[in-house]
Simulated scan of single mutants.
Amino acid sequence: MSVARQEISGNVLTPQGFIRGKLTVVDGRVSGIEGQPISEGQARVSGEPLILPGFIDLHVHGGGGFDTMEGGNAVAEIARVHARHGTTSMLATTMTAPMADISRAMAALADAVRTHRRGGAHVMGVHLEGPYINPGALGAQPDFARPASVAEVKALHELAPIRLITMAPELPGNLDLIAPLRAAGFHVQIGHTAGTYEDGVAALQRGATGFTHLFNAMSKFHHREPGIAGAALAHAEFAEIIPDLLHVHPGAIRAALRAIPCLYCVTDSTAAAGMPDGDYNLGSHRVTKCLGGVRLADGTLAGSTLTMDQALRNLVGMGLSLDDASRRVATNAADFLGLADRGRLFVGGRADIVVLDAALHLTQVIVEGDPIDLTDV
């Protein structure tokens, strides 16, 4: 149960800009924002706390040594780890696997999705990353790609609520499934694909709404063969990107920022996030964390160790304003899923809040009015 009333003083980032004053929380909602408008420059140099909307991560495989495919209490532990890094809402993301394994994982995810546990991020649902992907563009996904069907997706959805599906549009039948999946309420992203530019455009025309970890595990941009990456740069309103500065060069991130209005950040984090170097599970794969990255034995990048607070710092370090960086780690992801109650701080909205110091390190995290214990971060 959330704390009945809280007041947080500092520089509050609202949709209209920064306000120097205080934010009040009552019963898990923002009940008031009072103060005087100030510039971002003034907010950054004042030394007062910076109060931003909580981060939203739509692509989370693990953290703290736990993997979403494990079942049991794994997702609750993952949500706890990521909350301590500022993520207040997230999608638990599955791996490509035999359908029996996906079904078992989905059944285990249901409790975490339907019953929010205090101390962790709100698990809004599932991002089904595969198995409806191209076996020639697996990236770090295990080789269990399979044909898609609306009936199969709906059966999985009965086990745990699916919010987002990654698909390769060039596979036989997949393009024709996008419209019925959208009509059934699922968001569809283009990813793990060897498709052409034309395949990407056709998928958007059928109702696909985004791209999974832009530039990674998709056909590359070439000026005579633009590929799926070119379709995203030319036509996308939304796409996710991993800003760990390892998966995507800062120059490519800048290109995407110029081209895609609502580009948003994800971690694609694995069990290795928040853990020391060593070996960890990623679905049925064994991966190794070393030198800040996570890789398969052959050197292929296999998810990340990124957390959303570091994503924010990376963006600001690249030269983005704090306001713009906040949109990339919170607001745009909320808008992508059509969530009007979070991703921004306003009276009546969810009290999902992060408080940072001048160096952009977390000092407080609040999930729907509940303070998160940061003592072990």
Rank of each mutant, 00 (worst) to 15 (best):
G338Q: 03
E40L: 04
Q310W: 04
E48Q: 15
R20D: 08
Q6N: 03
E152R: 02
A297G: 05
R295V: 11
L164C: 04
G21Q: 07
R350L: 11
A140T: 09
F238S: 12
L233H: 09
A145M: 11
Q364H: 15
L138S: 02
T375S: 15
A252K: 06
S326V: 07
A151H: 09
T193D: 02
G65C: 02
V367L: 07
A97C: 14
A97H: 12
H59R: 13
R84T: 13
A184W: 04
I33F: 06
R254E: 11
R146D: 08
G230A: 08
G71P: 01
I190S: 01
L362E: 05
R84M: 15
L374T: 02
T24P: 06
P135N: 03
K154C: 10
D352P: 01
Q189Y: 01
D143H: 08
G136V: 05
P53V: 08
Y264D: 05
S2N: 03
I19G: 09
L245K: 01
R254M: 09
R5E: 14
S149P: 12
D143Q: 14
N216F: 06
D67L: 07
M167D: 01
H127D: 06
A137V: 02
L322R: 00
E225N: 15
L177M: 14
P161T: 04
E368F: 00
D27I: 09
A234M: 10
D370A: 12
I353T: 07
Q6V: 03
A256F: 05
D143I: 03
M318K: 06
L164R: 01
T363H: 06
G210H: 03
G10R: 01
G343E: 02
